[in-house]
């Protein structure tokens, strides 16, 4: 359609859509695994330890954590940008949200690995 020009933005929207679609699948799997196939609807502490120790479950739950964090914080970013921030403020908001996201994911991964160590 054309030659070259500077593209700005866009990937955030595209990845928001993709992560939204992934969430439908991952939330579904999470709900089924956590609640619908468990006798009584809730696991005991020991059951949870065994559950997260399964490499497939661990991978799926971490993927869920990453996707939901990315999707949620991107939504928060979009809402905050609607406040009419300056470009410098927008950059700062993005930086802060990236840090929050990394801390959230880091804590989730650490907690899961800690629980696996307790199994």
């Amino acid at each position: 359609m054309r030659s070259e020009y500077e593209r700005r933005g866009g990937w955030s929207w595209i990845t928001q859509v993709i992560s939204g679609l992934l969430l439908i699948v991952l939330v579904g799997l999470h709900m089924i695994a956590q609640h619908f196939i468990v006798e009584g609807g809730l696991r005991t502490y020991q059951d949870v330890l065994a559950y997260v120790s399964d490499p497939v479950i661990f991978t799926l739950e971490i993927l869920f954590l990453v996707v939901v964090t990315y999707h949620a914080l991107l939504g928060v970013r979009s809402v905050l940008f609607d406040l009419g921030l300056s470009e410098a403020q927008e950059r700062r908001v993005t930086q802060i949200l990236v840090v929050i996201g990394l801390l959230t994911i880091g804590y989730g991964v650490w907690l899961s690995l800690y629980l696996i160590g307790q199994a």
């Binding site: 054309r2 020009y5 500077e6 933005g9 866009g10």
Partner: peptide, 26 residues
């Protein structure tokens, strides 16, 4: 674009395909 493929200049496309362009719509 619909009526005539490629009639938008790079300058115009840069304004459209931009964080303050079509991607900003909620």
């Amino acid at each position: 674009i619909e009526v005539s493929e490629g009639r938008l200049s790079d300058e115009v496309l840069a304004a459209v395909d931009n964080e303050h362009g079509l991607w900003r719509c909620h």
